[in-house]
């Protein structure tokens, strides 16, 4: 079998890439798919912590590509879903410890056994980014509705278009209250600027912080706005036609009146 390798990237750091990777992975696995997550952020290992499996880590990705262990030995099994695995990043090595060819080979090997290989890309557009992209067939770009992440997302989208084609976009940490006040770019604004396909919108949600504290990603606990959003994103990746709820903060009456008065 040949699975799909998807890189989760952003350019700007701190926009929620790792959280998105963890939640999408859990979302896909809970739909019955065999999923492996790769932490591509060598030197700054975090995905295992967000996933709550940090105590199970024995080997890491540098051990795998340098032949110190078999890929199978480095797979950390998730404690909640048996079809979900993680290959952690190394904490002590440099980003240069791995090259693009090694990443491509590892990904090809994993695609034989898994439905999805999700790669958590490091911030920036240097070696670590190039490695993560080399290992992928498709890309998801994560941004928040702020000026610097959107600018950096645009740069990354430009770089991806030449290799992986058009990426899909997740807008993270959307605050409905701020959108309503006109103090935050809404989904249409971001799409006007970046001109890519929208995969989903994740609302600003305290549950994400709590989930990080506990190592239990939000998608596991139904009922939180962010967890539900990631659940929908996972289903969209599987090809389901799940509508993106209108999260632009306007109630319909105000929106209709606004259109009449201000032409938008």
């Amino acid at each position: 079998m040949s699975g799909r390798a998807i890189v989760v990237t952003s350019g700007k750091g701190g926009v929620g890439k790792t959280t998105a990777t963890a939640n999408i992975g859990l979302g896909l696995a809970s739909q019955g798919k065999k999923v492996v997550l790769i932490d591509g952020d060598i030197g700054l290992r975090n995905l295992d912590l967000i996933m709550g499996v940090e105590n199970r880590v024995v080997y890491n990705i540098v051990d795998v590509v340098s032949g110190r262990c078999q890929p199978r030995q480095a797979l950390v099994k998730d404690k909640r879903i048996s079809s979900l695995f993680l290959i952690p990043a190394s904490q002590i090595d440099q980003k240069e410890a791995i090259n693009a060819d090694q990443m491509r080979d590892l990904s090809a090997q994993l695609k034989e056994e898994f439905d999805f290989v999700l790669i958590d890309c490091p911030a920036g557009i240097e070696q670590g980014f190039r490695n993560a992209v080399a290992a992928a067939d498709e890309a998801i770009v994560v941004t928040t509705p702020d000026v610097s992440p959107v600018r950096d997302a645009d740069r990354v989208i430009g770089l991806l278009q030449s290799s992986l084609g058009e990426p899909q976009l997740i807008i993270n940490r959307m605050s409905m209250a701020m959108v309503k006040r006109g103090d935050m770019l809404d989904q249409q604004d971001v799409l006007d600027i970046l001109a890519v396909r929208l995969l989903g919108i994740v609302p600003e949600d305290e549950a994400v912080v709590i989930a990080g504290n506990k190592g239990t990603p939000v998608v596991l606990n139904g009922g939180s706005p962010s967890g539900d959003a990631y659940g929908r994103i996972a289903r969209r990746i599987l090809g389901e036609d799940v509508p993106i709820p209108e999260l632009n903060g306007h109630n319909s009456l105000a929106k209709r009146l606004g259109k009449i008065l201000f032409g938008r």
């Binding site: 959108v179 309503k180 006040r181 006109g182 103090d183 935050m184 770019l185 809404d186 604004d189 903060g249 306007h250 105000a254 929106k255 009146l257 606004g258 008065l261 201000f262 938008r264």
Partner: peptide, 8 residues
């Protein structure tokens, strides 16, 4: 009220 005129 209509989300216009904010910093966005």
């Amino acid at each position: 009220f209509f989300g216009k005129g904010g910093s966005k």
